[in-house]
């Protein structure tokens, strides 16, 4: 019984999360061409990326923490200013964080 309801929860979660994706992809073109919708749609990736950066760099378990990830982010900013290729930014940051944790 308990296993069955757990599977029901999993399938419900799958269906709901997939429907969100499909609904977003299915918004009619006429709606997207409205100025306000167009402006919002352009801002959303920027806003979510900014939030994702903050969460990935500073978030601990329900707290903000300063650790090796901050050093990695500083490296990433410098690499971006120097126009380093994407993969150099990404895996260089991993290397900085791993090295910082090794010595700390």
């Amino acid at each position: 019984m308990e296993t069955t309801t757990l599977w029901t929860g999993i399938l419900l979660a799958a269906l709901g999360c997939w429907l969100f994706k499909v609904v977003g992809m299915s918004v009619p073109k006429q709606v997207l061409e409205r100025p306000a919708v167009s402006r919002v749609a352009n801002l959303i990736p920027v806003a979510l990326l900014a939030a994702l950066v903050v969460v990935q760099v500073f978030a601990g378990d329900r707290e903000l923490v300063l650790d090796a990830r901050v050093l990695a982010a500083v490296y990433a900013v410098i690499a971006l200013i120097l126009r380093a290729p994407f993969l150099v930014v990404v895996f260089g940051a991993a290397g900085v964080a791993a090295a910082a944790r090794l010595v700390s």
Partner: peptide, 29 residues
């Protein structure tokens, strides 16, 4: 241990970076 948490943050930062130069995006970000 392999710094992969920092790699994900750096990836999002690298993706955000070019968009910050577009007018009207820096403040919302």
């Amino acid at each position: 241990d392999y710094g992969l948490d920092a790699a994900v943050g750096a990836a999002f930062l690298a993706l955000l970076w070019p968009r910050l130069r577009e007018p009207g995006t820096a403040i919302p970000a």
